[in-house]
Design a protein around this nucleic acid. Structure first.
Lengths: 120, 120
DNA sequence: CGTCTGCTTCGACGACTCTCGTACCATGGG
DNA sequence: CCCATGGTACGAGAGTCGTCGAAGCAGACG
């Protein structure tokens, strides 16, 4: 722990994220087409700031949860960062809005509308 | 063939479409997450009116084309109707806009933007 | 009538997805 | 230092998806 003091800190454990220019529309749509992932995104959008993975109450095991978060991360929908033992998740609102203006909002609105429609 | 005189005419050969209330957001997003289908929708949106299946120049065989059009129809994205030997396709803009306001437009805009971004 | 065109149906195959359980690692606290 | 906690890695299994070719059907047209 001399000059590599920060090597095992938060930033170094950050998993690989695609650049904004690497985000593909098909990938985003595919990521959002899964009910579990859509609920994650919906929950994430409803909260003001980052949420830990453990916050979500999903009907799948931890392995599957990891898988879904990876799909969301690799498609460019969320950004993940470690903080201690937990992992914080945040929507990449800025990047998505810049690339696909209005898309995220309309999907979120549509998801909320559909949820209301089906539970009515 | 007495009272069922119209049974083999255009309307009767119309394949099954989901009701507007049956359209699911996940299904729509999944349908749009395939490059071939997205290009179909894009082409369909660019044209003023219905387009025949034969109009599209897709990099797949005819069997696969049929498959993609079925996915689009069954997810509620397009409406299909026969006219003679050809089949006409049209976006279900009204239904989609009513269910998911702004979604279709933002996807179309995003697809056009991405196409321009990748061919630049 | 015969044939051509446009689309469908039916397997089939490879690839990918979602799911899981188990084993594992890395951080933080007693 | 040891263990509890939160998340990951690695198969593995069931299911779905995209693709194709070959065969078939329904109108159109000579």
């Amino acid at each position: 722990m001399t000059d590599r003091d920060t090597s095992h800190r938060d930033a170094s454990r950050t998993p690989a994220h695609p650049e904004a220019a690497e985000i593909r529309l098909e990938g985003v749509l595919h990521a959002l087409s899964d009910p579990v992932r859509l609920s994650i995104v919906l929950d994430l959008a409803g909260s003001a700031d980052d949420l830990a993975c453990s916050h979500f109450d999903l009907p799948v095991t931890k392995s599957t949860t990891t898988h879904h978060f990876r799909v969301l991360r690799e498609s460019g929908v969320v950004r993940q960062a470690y903080r201690g033992t937990t992992k914080l998740n945040a929507l990449r609102r800025d990047d998505l809005d810049a690339l696909f203006p209005g898309l995220l909002d309309s999907v979120l609105t549509a998801a909320a509308a559909e949820a209301a429609r089906l539970t009515a």
